[in-house]
């Protein structure tokens, strides 16, 4: 908590992350035009995950949190990812 409040993040970092997010949005649009069939879903989810991670890591200060806290977030996110993967075994192989 305390360490978190006193931590000062350079504005530069935020700007970089913001630009990265914009580029990734561009990439999403590009990917949508590429006619990749069922893989376009994978591409979309992958890009969205990277974006969400950037927001969590920098904007929401996850980077500066305790290890335990990161773990408590990481495990559920992995779980939900596996759940999503499992649903693909249905729709892709029907």
């Amino acid at each position: 908590m305390e360490e978190n409040a006193s931590h000062h993040v350079a504005t530069k970092t935020f700007v970089f992350v913001w630009i990265a997010l914009l580029c990734l949005t561009g990439l999403t649009i590009k990917a949508a035009q590429m006619q990749m069939g069922e893989w376009s879903m994978v591409a979309n989810i992958a890009i969205a995950s990277v974006k969400a991670s950037l927001v969590l890591w920098f904007f929401m200060h996850l980077k500066y949190e305790k290890r335990l806290f990161k773990l408590l977030l990481f495990v559920p996110i992995m779980t939900i990812s596996i759940i999503i993967v499992l649903t693909f075994f249905d729709i892709w192989y029907r």
Binding site: I82, I83, L86, D90, I91, W92, Y93
Partner: peptide
């Protein structure tokens, strides 16, 4: 969290998913 498909064996889900679940 990873076994819910066993409620759906006769739902028309793919065979691959049925075996995995």
């Amino acid at each position: 969290y990873l076994v819910w498909g066993h409620h759906m064996f006769t739902s028309g889900m793919s065979d691959t998913a049925r075996i995995i679940f």
